[in-house]
Every structure is written in C-alpha cells, then in structure tokens.
Simulated scan of single mutants.
Amino acid sequence: MEGVGPTAKKAHNLSKPMLTYAFTVVTVVLGLAFTLYSLPAPFLPFFHADRNVSSVWDGVILGAVSVGFFISCFLTAQLMEHFNYLPILMTGSGALGILFIVNSFFDRITNNILYIVLSCSFRVVAGIAIGLVSVPSFGVLAKMIPTRIAFVTATAEAALNGAQAFGPFMGSLLYDAGGYSLAFWVPGVIVACNVLLELTIPHVNTLPDQTDTNDSIKVYKDPWIMMAAWHCAACQVLLYFHLPTLDPFAERALGETVVWTGLALLVNTSTTILCTPPLATSKMQVMLVLALLGFFVPMGSTPILVIMIDVYKLRNGGEISV
C-alpha cells in the first residue's frame, strides 16, 4: 500500500503497518455491514408462507433497505462535511447491529399487519445505518491512500459485494439451524461489536479543508457523475432483482432447500471479489462484461425456460396450449 502523497499528509501520518491495519479494519467493517444487506433473502419467503403473509411483501421488505440506503448516502455525505468519519461509522455499526437484534423478536408478533409495518420500517432504518457505514468507509479509505483511488475503490467494492454474496448464504444456514430469530440476532451482535473494533483505528482526518468551496448540489447535478451513479444503480438492480423469487422456485421446481438457495446466491456474486480489483478503471471492463453477459445469460435463462415448460406440462396433463 505504498504511494502516500502530499494529500495524505493532511489526513494522517500513519506508519505503513498502522496504515495497513486501519485499511483492513475499515474494509472488514464495511464488509460485515453489507453482510446484513440481503441476509434474509433466502428464508424470508419460507417464513412468510408459514405465517400466511403475501409473497408480494417478500420483495417490499427486502427492497426497503435500499430505500433507506439511497436516502442515507445523500445525508451522510452532508454529515461528512461537518464531522470526522469515525463517529458516523460507529453510529452506523451500532445502530445496524441493534436493529437486527430487535428484528430477531419479530417472529413473536402475531398480527401480520403489525409485522409488515415494523419489518418495512426497520429495513428502511437499517438501510440508513448501512449508509452511515458505507459513505464514511469509502471516504476514509480514499484519504488513507489518495494516490491509488482505483485500487481503494475496487478493494472496497470487492469487500462490499463479497459480503452481500455471503449474507444470504449465512442467513440460510442460521435459519436452517435455529429459525428466524437466530438468523437475525447472531449477525446483529457481530456487527454491533464492530464499534469496539472501530475504536482501535488510528486517527485519520476526513474533514474537508476550510477553503474547500465545493458545492454538493453542483456535484449532484453533474451529468458525468449522475450518469455513472445511475449506471451503478441499474447494475445492482440486475444483480439482485431475483432474490424474492429464487427461493420459492428452488423449492417447488428443483426440490432444493433454503441452504441451496443461499449457496446459489453466494456463487452468483462471489466472482465480484475476484474480478473487481484487476478490472478497476479499465476500458476493457465494459467490453469484457458485455461479452460475458452475452455468453452467460443464455446459460442461465435457457435451462430455466426448459424447467418452466416441464412444470407447465406436468400441471396441464403434458399438453402445451397453443
């Protein structure tokens, strides 16, 4: 992690071992927070089916966290103008952990309407807490190694996406082992304990210079920035839109359990960890992604279509209506 330039001297004077330690801790904290992002995806349809909650709410509750995260990213960026990163980061980790611990008691709620309202509300707030972790993490990592922004961004993205890949797998294992409650309070305790880990991070200043005249509104209106932001948003939609439907499909059409679904989601996105760092800021990335998309989409869609036709035929006496 060499390459500490003049800008870095304003942010920190850490030795290389301490810089490596701080970089590692922040990356781990970021990854653990995003483990909770899609953790309930594999087992929530099962749980809702058992308590007669409409499957429509699978996607609403899972997607509510993204609403909170979207709001939080803008608000946290404003907070970073006035507060150093560490208090914001600690607040996000602590709040996220507590929210998941409280969420572990929702299986005791007998009224489905109350359950849905609380689940959606808690997921929105959880998204806000994840934003309080994500934005300061990216900010401080960039301050630590300002001359290698591509490497920093790629590493953080790999940790983030790898954690989102592992989250559903961990959630499915915990749900299979101990049910709804265990799947929430165990990761909640782990993330809440991040606050203690964050206290060991050496000081890094992320406050902007007093002479900095950047206008946040101008940044948000910049088409170059917003185009990139919406492109990333579209990629995330494509990556996770199938979460609410994969589990029921795996059970009914493939005869697999929630653990298989979690493993499939892990395999689905785990390649991000491997491909993100070497492809950072590369012009070849777009070309390669488009080429791979054209190759792998038929591999994913064609077998599913065959299964869909087989299921339809079985349910209709072996005949396909014209």
Rank of each mutant, 00 (worst) to 15 (best):
A11S: 12
L19N: 07
V29L: 13
V29F: 11
V29E: 10
P42V: 04
P45R: 07
R51M: 08
S54I: 08
S54A: 13
V60C: 12
L62T: 00
C73Y: 05
C73Q: 12
Q78Y: 04
L89M: 03
G94K: 10
L96K: 05
L96W: 00
N103Y: 13
N103F: 15
I113N: 15
V117E: 02
V125G: 02
I130E: 11
S134Q: 14
P136I: 03
S137R: 13
P146M: 07
R148I: 03
I149V: 07
A150P: 03
F151A: 12
T153M: 09
A154F: 04
E157M: 06
F166C: 07
F166K: 01
F169L: 11
G179P: 02
L182D: 04
V186F: 05
I190Y: 00
H203I: 01
T206Q: 09
D209M: 03
P223T: 03
M226G: 03
M227Y: 07
A234C: 12
C235T: 15
L238A: 04
L239E: 09
F241R: 13
P244A: 01
G255V: 04
S270G: 10
T272H: 14
S282I: 07
K283C: 05
F295H: 05
P303T: 04
I307P: 09
L314M: 05
R315E: 15
E319P: 06
I320P: 08
